[in-house]
Design a protein around this nucleic acid. Structure first.
Lengths: 230, 230
DNA sequence: TGTTTTGATTGATATATATCAATTTCCTGA
DNA sequence: TCAGGAAATTGATATATATCAATCAAAACA
């Protein structure tokens, strides 16, 4: 275990900026007591779909992907970066994970006993409300995603993923992706060959500049157009 | 307004069997006071995607569809029957509907001021927990759906929809569907022509018996197989 | 009762996308 | 520095699915 990590405390952690802002010092202390820190190398699995879900996960470093293992293929639901937490729907249903999580980059996470979390939801209405807000935003995001995946053709889906990566994950342009082409395909619901081809087409049309894993959106308006058109 | 409806009271309504079971008589009374009953004819719209969402809806009679209006097509998220309630993710985010709802059959619904609901979530931890459970189950359902829609081919998707209709909506076999072929297509993410063709194929293979709007699953095992295979 | 309209069905065709196979590039470890 | 393996790329082909157009059945209507 990394000593630096162990010296950290929820009280001065960035996590506080998230839903934890409604917690008192004592409540944060409760979370802190039931917390432990784990490091994952890129590629390592945080948890597998179907396994019990005894804690919720707060990402403090790196990048992880949440993905459903379907029939042969994977579907990546979202990427998670610091400071964000992973809280699956199984926690309040049957205590199972309904998706898997894997580190895309070297990643550090805090694991907190789920019962402490549930207790706080019961005791602190602000926290509960904040949590419900959070789950709701997640649901809205999923709606957009399912519409994109089921109603748009490949160029539109790739466009949506590129905007997602630029605006929500890497937050710059150009951005260097740490995910593979396969991941890109799993995010947009297509084969990796197709994702590569579409990327190449967008590059040839001058909408993107691509050098290895670095992508720059050159013509935002036209890419937006492609996203709209389907 | 129907007098019968007005005489009803939340205290002896079937809704109590749902998440409302954790509410006290006084709390149910609060809901009852802020409640009004509305009747919709088949085809009428309960609310439109994008409009404000000032109340949550409890279905007491009929059948409704929840659908996202996408790019040209609709995607039906789910069907709602009595006694179930409709509570969109926008309520805790920006107070907008993220999907539309329309009556499929003649439908009666209770509308309750969303602020009363939110207040109860804050005051009654059991109710809050029950509500989160509910939202979680919804999320799990959506996961299954998105996997079906993005990873299975048409016969598998139709198979999933048929099981959904038999087990969750009509709860009998054979069942007479009150939804159109277009709705069937919107549930399974394909064109209506395709949905008709797959249905016909399943009929020709002896897996289904179809007479007009009555469908009977004859060979459950084989249909399950088709759902699995994709 | 006939007429009109709507939804269901079928067939022919176009097209988006997956799959398979072959290279090529890149990265890692000895 | 090289060898081996993994990932990325490209091309050829097969296939699932949408689209278009026509017909048919059924329900609403006057």
């Amino acid at each position: 275990m990394n000593k630096m990590q162990d010296l950290e405390n929820c009280k001065n952690c960035n996590c506080k900026t998230s839903i934890f802002k409604s917690l008192s010092t004592e409540e944060l202390e409760q979370i802190n007591k039931g917390r432990y820190t784990v490091n994952y190398k890129a590629g390592e699995i945080l948890f597998k779909q179907g396994t019990p879900s005894p804690h919720f996960v707060c990402l403090t470093k790196g990048l992880a992907k949440l993905y459903i293992e379907g029939y042969g293929k994977n579907l990546i639901l979202s990427l998670v970066k610091p400071v964000d937490y992973i809280f699956g729907p199984g926690t309040y249903v049957d205590n199972r994970h309904y998706y898997s999580a894997a580190a895309v980059e070297d990643t550090t996470a805090c694991l907190v006993d789920v019962n402490i979390f549930k207790q706080l939801v019961r005791e602190n209405p602000d926290f509960a409300e904040e949590f419900i807000c959070r789950v709701s935003r997640q649901a809205i995001f999923n709606f957009d995603q399912v519409v994109s995946l089921t109603q748009k053709q490949m160029p539109g889906r790739i466009a949506d993923v590129l905007f997602y990566l630029r605006d929500k994950i890497y937050e710059k342009n150009p951005f260097e992706i740490s995910i593979s082409r396969q991941d890109l395909a799993d995010l947009s619901g297509m084969s990796k060959e197709s994702s590569i081809r579409i990327l190449k087409e967008l590059k040839d049309e001058g909408i993107l500049r691509i050098t290895g894993n670095t992508i720059e959106i050159l013509n935002e308006k036209q890419l937006r157009q492609i996203s709209q058109t389907g």
